[in-house]
Every structure is written in C-alpha cells, then in structure tokens.
Write a protein that binds this DNA or RNA. Sequence first.
DNA 1: TAATACATTTGATATAAATCAAATTCTATC
DNA 2: GATAGAATTTGATTTATATCAAATGTATTA
Lengths: 191, 191
Amino acid sequence: MIPQDLLQSIEENFHPLSSACKEEMLSMAKLHQQKKHSVLVREGQYSHQTFYLISGCARAYYLHDGKEVTDWIAFEGEFISAIVSFFSDRPSPHYIELLEDSILVEFQRDQVEALADRYHEFERLLRKIVTQTMLKQQEKIASIQFHSAEERYKKLLDIRPDITKRVPLTHIASYLGITLETLSRIRRPHR
Amino acid sequence: MIPQDLLQSIEENFHPLSSACKEEMLSMAKLHQQKKHSVLVREGQYSHQTFYLISGCARAYYLHDGKEVTDWIAFEGEFISAIVSFFSDRPSPHYIELLEDSILVEFQRDQVEALADRYHEFERLLRKIVTQTMLKQQEKIASIQFHSAEERYKKLLDIRPDITKRVPLTHIASYLGITLETLSRIRRPHR
DNA sequence: TAATACATTTGATATAAATCAAATTCTATC
DNA sequence: GATAGAATTTGATTTATATCAAATGTATTA
C-alpha cells in the first residue's frame, strides 16, 4: 500500500512510532487521487483536514485586495493544510489548490486529536511537526526582511531547482512577496 | 511564591495541568532577578534555556551586516528564548538582552523534555505553546508583506500602547523591519 | 490547426522606504 | 546643575520594487 511512504517519511523526518500507533494512523488516512486545478479548500469553509502529498503539488493562497497571495507551496512528501482553520478552528482565509494531478492522503483533525489523546508518542510527533514549521517561518521572516527579491529567488532555486517547471511564475512571485514583473526581470539573463 | 503567576497564566492561556505535573514544573523553575542591560544569551552560545518574564521586558536580536536586528520583544507574562538554539540545538545567532530590571523564571530544556517524557499532558502543553507561536509568525509574515510601515506601527501600538515608553525606538523600528528614521517620520504629527 | 485564454516579458514611470549626513533633544552621572 | 553620550528628529538624495500598460509567447480545446 502506498501510505508506507508517508510512514517512512514521517519516521525519518521526525521520530519513530510504535506499530500499534502506526496502524491506527494508517486506518484513519483517506487516500485520494485528484486532478490538477482541483480545489481542496475554499475561503470561508471550516477546514478540519490536513493533506499529505504522496505525489504532485499544491498551493495555499488567500485574497488580499482582490489579488491572490500564495503563502505555501507543497510537493510530494510534504503536508499542506488551511493553517488558520485547521489550527485555530476559524473559517479559512485560504484556498488550497492542486497545481498538478496528485495523490494525497487526507487526515481529519478530530481523529488526529483523538490519536494524540491516546498515544503520547503521537502527541510528540505533532509537537515536532509544528516546531519544525515554526522554525521554517522564523527563517522566512528573516528572509523577507533582510534579503532582496533576487536573493530570495536564488535561495528558493537552491532548495527547489525544479520549481519553475512545476509552478507558474505568478505563484512563485507571490510566494516570494514580489510582483510577477519583478520576478521576470530577476530571471532575465543579467543586464 | 511568585511563580504562581506563571502557572496561572499557562493554565489560562493553554490548558490545565495536574497538580503533580505543576509541582514538578515549579521544582525545576529557577527564579532570577536581573538588571536592565543584562545579557542572558550571547551569539555563538548553545542556549538550552527558555525564560518566562514575571516582570520587566527583554528582546532577542542578531547581527546582520554588523547591524542589530531585533526580532522578538517580550514583556511580563511572556516567554523569550534563543529560538534557533533552543529548538534545534545549534549555536545561537541571537543575543537576549533585558530592556528593564526584570524578574524571570528560567527553565532548562533537558528538564523540560524530561517532563514531557513523563507527562503526556505536559507534552500537549508544549505543542499548544509552539502552535500558538507558529500562528503568530504566520500573521507576522502577512503583516510584513502586505502592510506599510505605518500600518505595522499602528497595529503594534494597538497591541502594546506602552511600548514606546519601555523600548527604545531603534529596537521598535528594527522589530518592524524599518529604519529608525522612517519610524521617526511615521511618528511625527501628520504632515 | 485556428482560436482563445493564459503566462510571461518588456517598457516607462511612480513611490515607499533606505541611506547618508547633520542637528536637536533627552538622560544619566560626575 | 553642567556636560558627555545616547536617542531621536530632520533634510536631501538614492534605490529597489511597485504600478500601469502593452507586446509577445505558450497552452488548451473546439
């Protein structure tokens, strides 16, 4: 079964789980296959799901003055969720949209919480995931405040050289906090 | 004893703990009294402590191109730590400095982790604290990217009207990601 | 394969905020 | 209370990036 990938990547990146816990975790996982451009979450919805990408990619975005602002992009092996709604139980400002045909695993928050009630080790896993996310955001803040648009783009390419092949530039620009035009100029062979 | 405040604020803001757990938590808390300008953590150190402010205030900053960048300011009732070192066990890029005479409670990470091993409820508390921090950062990112310097300053004043009386403008400017001069102009009675 | 929508580039101009430099005001202490 | 150092304000200029507008390039589908 495919979600083996999920378990393996979780155990590698975070920490090992007992087989009982893993089994329960798998039993609550719902496997989907979805087409490019599918919208998993819409603004205003309560989203009590989090998604793990087996393959494909997705973005989270919200509307600001009528414009789309992409603030999260996830690829295979990563999670994506409507962060505000999922974690603080409010209507989602975010949309989540697939950028490629994808295979994904869906988890319900209630079930996740119930598992965290029953397994201390799973509670710890969640803490680690959240801690890692927090540290990434910490870096993102520093990067927005003290690096130029060009530096941020280059850094992104270091981490994900294939991103320009998989994600439209508009979304990348937005994710970097710059306009499409500025990104285009940055990409132009120098001078 | 003073750390009652700590327990109360934790239980109010996050969730209740059993008395056994609370007792152990208190037993590992170390109470300090420190003068303004004391430096709690220096760049390059491994900092395995986190600090809770009973009274006073503090900032975390790092050096970027020789300039101080303040990226966290905490007041009484809040935590402050050398976030990178504490959470990912690397040498700290941050300094932590007191901005007023302060009374603070110090926790050692090893002891915190040991308590999290023994008490599932404490593990959950940690998860909640980290989740809340992550959501705050999420907001900060949006605020840097889509609000002007002036809007960010006004919002800060809404949350902490007394901040200009307690924290030098240089640090506030830096915290907002703008220069001291720009902040000064924003503050000038309009036009 | 033509037609149409979508994505990207290019150009001209505007603007918020940075930078550099100096003056002023505040504050701590001898 | 005088004075040195720190903090803040003010002014002139520069700069990175945004904005507006249009042209070009690339997919998708009828």
